[in-house]
């Protein structure tokens, strides 16, 4: 399973790693209980600080996407997280910002829903 980091992007590298892992889980390239490389190995392979990878892994573990066990390393969680207050707290402000911008740009609800459908479907065919 390929993970790509864009060094020219304004998105922080740890966020890119986090998003790439979630994307891979979503489209089935990473299965439940699949082992992930160690923080050190991934950091060396990407040429980034171990703390950057550790930050991504810690966030993924906090959110319930992966589990980290001492000695065994990181692996995709057996039970993936469902909708919870944490998810809503994260997503709602982002959606509000997006919808506000859409409103200013006079993008109507129908177009917006069509865009959401399109992006949602693309998510499974990465």
């Amino acid at each position: 399973m390929e993970l790509t980091v864009d060094f020219a992007s304004t998105v922080p590298i740890y966020t890119q790693i986090r998003n790439a892992v979630i994307q891979a889980i979503a489209d089935g390239r990473l299965k439940s209980s699949e082992v992930l490389p160690s923080v050190r190995a991934l950091g060396s392979a990407l040429g980034v600080n171990y703390h950057t990878v550790n930050k991504a892994y810690t966030q993924l573990a906090d959110e319930g996407f992966i589990t980290m066990r001492r000695g065994l390393g990181a692996m995709v969680a057996e039970q993936l997280p469902a909708v919870d207050p944490h998810f809503e707290a994260e997503v709602v402000p982002q959606m509000k910002a997006l919808f506000t911008e859409a409103k200013v740009r006079t993008v109507d609800r129908q177009t917006l829903v069509a865009l959401i459908d399109q992006v949602y479907d693309e998510g499974w065919h990465h």
Partner: peptide, 16 residues
């Protein structure tokens, strides 16, 4: 190259 890819599966199973 500004985009760097790694193979997570290969890396996890790498022989060290």
């Amino acid at each position: 190259a500004m985009r760097v890819s790694v193979d997570l599966t290969q890396l996890a199973n790498e022989q060290t």
